[in-house]
Amino acid sequence: MSANDHNTPLPAPAAPAGELRASHQDRDTVVERLRNAAVEGRIDHDELDERLERALTSKTHAELAALTADLPVPQDPEEQLPPLVLKGGMSGAVRGPGRWEAPAYVIAHGGVGGVKIDFSRVRSRLREILVEAYGETSGVTVVIPDGWTADTTGMDPGVGGLRDRTTPDRLPGTPLIRLAGSGGMGGVIVRHPNDKERRKLDENPA
């Protein structure tokens, strides 16, 4: 071992997450949660004042976490959206490709006219979106952007089959499309945009 090895300082161990210093934004986030909890009747006004004072003077994440430990974790607004139900009926049903807010649960019945769900312009912070697809007579097509991936292990291919034409390369922060249901007679397809759809997206970037 050389002399330099003895003189090289060892890196300082990382502080536990709870001991990390809180920022102004961290404190503001807790203050908002406490105020919402008071509005919902979870804590009374005296307790609110006490917790707010402690929140504004907290120095670490652990001190802030203690103030909200007995409160429910707030849901993302997308998780509160009701399920989207699409029924192909006689004339078919299409959702997208314009901008739309996707819920965490989508149910599609292909019927006679078929259903197409196009997530090409959806921006979602959800970790997963469950698509329960029933191909029935004319099938269901699910289009997802590049960088999104699909899990089809929960699908029954039925007579019409299941065709997964997606790539496994998932970008960070994108939702997983989890498919369930049955292909029925018409089958279920999940894929990325085709050439024609890509041209339309390029022509209308908004």
Rank of each mutant, 00 (worst) to 15 (best):
residue 136 E to L: 09
residue 152 T to C: 11
residue 162 L to C: 10
residue 119 F to M: 11
residue 135 G to T: 03
residue 117 I to W: 10
residue 158 G to W: 03
residue 147 G to D: 11
residue 123 R to C: 09
residue 163 R to F: 07
residue 151 D to G: 00
residue 163 R to M: 11
residue 164 D to Q: 12
residue 125 R to W: 08
residue 127 R to Q: 15
residue 157 P to W: 11
residue 152 T to P: 05
residue 165 R to N: 12
residue 141 T to E: 14
residue 140 V to A: 04
residue 125 R to D: 15
residue 118 D to Q: 09
residue 125 R to M: 10
residue 163 R to K: 14
residue 128 E to L: 10
residue 148 W to A: 01
residue 146 D to N: 08
residue 117 I to L: 15
residue 170 R to V: 09
residue 163 R to C: 02
residue 129 I to T: 02
residue 132 E to T: 09
residue 133 A to K: 04
residue 158 G to F: 04
residue 144 I to Q: 03
residue 150 A to H: 10
residue 130 L to C: 01
residue 131 V to D: 01
residue 138 S to E: 14
residue 154 G to I: 02
residue 143 V to C: 04
residue 141 T to H: 05
residue 132 E to H: 10
residue 115 V to D: 00
residue 132 E to S: 09
residue 159 V to G: 02
residue 114 G to K: 03
residue 162 L to A: 11
residue 136 E to T: 08
residue 122 V to C: 15
residue 122 V to K: 05
residue 134 Y to W: 13
residue 145 P to E: 00
residue 145 P to Y: 03
residue 160 G to T: 01
residue 170 R to H: 14
residue 143 V to A: 00
residue 150 A to S: 14
residue 138 S to Q: 13
residue 141 T to G: 06
residue 131 V to L: 04
residue 159 V to K: 14
residue 160 G to Q: 05
residue 146 D to E: 14
residue 135 G to M: 05
residue 163 R to S: 10
residue 142 V to C: 06
residue 116 K to R: 14
residue 125 R to G: 11
residue 110 G to K: 02
residue 164 D to F: 13
residue 141 T to R: 13
residue 133 A to N: 01
residue 143 V to T: 11
residue 156 D to R: 12
residue 171 L to F: 12
residue 116 K to T: 15
